[in-house]
């Protein structure tokens, strides 16, 4: 029983960590702010959810699990709000999103953004 629980928890924690890394990788790879928000969303939803679920399996039926659940609930309520605030602020400030099929020269577009944002 204990072994089974450890295996489940291990799988959840490792896959959660993996999704967090994918989110971080997306944060680096994707071409502009709006696209990067999707990558941050991966970390906030599935990455956090899987890691906290893995910890909940370890916690069992106790107040520790309740606290972990509350962390997840707070995270899921606050993350879309702050992402919306960020997207809306960037949009109102006139930052145009990069549209259409993006070629693989994200470094070049980064460079262009930098020169245009510094008057």
């Amino acid at each position: 029983m204990e072994v089974l629980r450890d295996i489940a928890s291990w799988a959840l924690l490792v896959s959660g960590g993996g999704f967090c890394m994918i989110g971080g990788l997306g944060l680096l790879r994707l071409p502009d702010v709006y696209a990067r928000m999707h990558a941050a969303g991966i970390t906030d939803t599935l990455g956090a959810g899987l890691i906290l679920a893995g910890l909940m399996v370890q916690g069992g039926l106790s107040l520790v699990t309740v606290k972990l659940f509350l962390i997840l609930v707070f995270l899921l309520f606050t993350s879309p709000t702050s992402t919306y605030a960020l997207a809306n602020a960037a949009h109102r400030q006139g930052l145009a999103p990069l549209l259409g099929a993006t070629p693989l020269d994200s470094a070049a577009t980064d460079h262009k953004d930098e020169t245009s944002s510094k008057p």
């Binding site: 999707h38 969303g41 899921l76 992402t83 919306y84 997207a87």
Partner: peptide, 9 residues
């Protein structure tokens, strides 16, 4: 917004 792949602006 919570669904990755779409963000409301």
């Amino acid at each position: 917004t919570l669904t990755p792949g779409t963000v409301s602006m």
